[in-house]
Design a binder for these strands. Structure first.
Lengths: 185, 185
DNA sequence: AGCTTAATGCAATTCCTTTGCGTTAAGAAA
DNA sequence: TTTCTTAACGCAAAGGAATTGCATTAAGCT
């Protein structure tokens, strides 16, 4: 079930959404991550469970919604002055964020079965950031990298390690991945 | 919760496991995939729900267990006579299997949060297959490829497209990924 | 064949989920 | 500002899933 567009976005509706999101974040400690229930969240947010079920459908969809909200970037990637260092800085931060317990959980929630439209939104954030870095490169007169190639050969291996093989992508590993895009001289 | 090792593997216990697995497969049509419940599976398998809860813990763990059982290879990858064609054939088959609705579901189940130890098992099948192909190459006197590199730059992009960006990895796309390992002459 | 106990079935209980209905308040219009 | 419409919420009842104690069955061992 997809979170439907609301015709009323102000006041109470917004307050409840905020309260529920806050409650989920508050209750989503790595330890309790798998045991939280909708009634628990409702109690912590000061609403009735039926409100959550009506707005979000089920727990998985709610978690995915919170995940997307957290993954949504609040700002553009850092401008380090050059495209290669921009990319290295962004990937380091990306790998570190996604490797954390909360990052792993967000990735899983964001790729969950029920989150139909959400997954694309979620991965489009990464695309947007990489596009921003290439645009910046063009503005500087640098040769931009190919976004899809970075997705395929830098982002994808990092995500694979986090989700599938459950290894932590180290900064050194990330560095070597980018070395394939920007070979060390 | 991890499926615990059973001290009794014969007779009834095995029959029930088989019946439950069969019931899950039977009920796991792409359409009904998200609505199946433990009581439904129990009824189809001719057991009581409490049996399933006791043995598997919850629905997600049961689905992961079935997924791992299905992903477990029944045979070694095809021997085409040369390492490059072995790899291309294996990757083509892998991408096709995982792209199907049932394959996607298996991948998701296999990488689910609750499936702690399972994910490694699941991805080790892929590692094993690739290792088999390299061993075969060595036996032929060919130079083997690096398994980790294939995981990072061929398997990972394919899985990323299936799980995250929700694009179907086409045979042509897979071919281009392997071209990076074995450049076209 | 007999023994031990893991695994299952049954049933009661608890908790989660769904749904109908009355109430509240957001957004539009007078 | 006031009034109106109705989306969204709270409450409570009903339905269904998950849990658990206890009796029963049968696997594996002697």
């Amino acid at each position: 079930m997809v979170v439907r567009e609301r015709v009323r976005v102000g006041g109470r509706s917004a307050r409840i959404q905020q309260a529920v999101h806050d409650a989920v974040r508050k209750l989503s400690t790595p330890a309790t991550r798998n045991q939280i229930t909708v009634p628990q969240i409702a109690a912590a947010a000061g609403v009735t469970p039926s409100t959550i079920y009506r707005r979000w459908g089920d727990l998985q969809t709610l978690l995915a919604d919170v995940a997307v909200a957290r993954l949504r970037p609040i700002s553009d990637p850092d401008d380090t002055g050059a495209v290669e260092t921009d990319l290295r800085a962004f990937i380091d931060q990306y790998a570190e964020e996604m490797s954390s317990p909360v990052g792993r959980a967000l990735l899983r929630d964001g790729t969950a079965e029920t989150a139909e439209g959400q997954t694309c939104i979620c991965c489009s954030f990464t695309n947007d950031h990489l596009a921003t870095i290439t645009e910046r490169a063009k503005a500087r007169g640098e040769t931009p990298f190919d976004v899809q190639e970075v997705i395929d050969h830098v982002v994808a291996p990092i995500v694979y390690r986090i989700l599938v093989s459950q290894e932590t992508p180290t900064p050194d590993y990330c560095r070597r991945l980018i070395d394939r895009i920007y070979p060390r001289t």
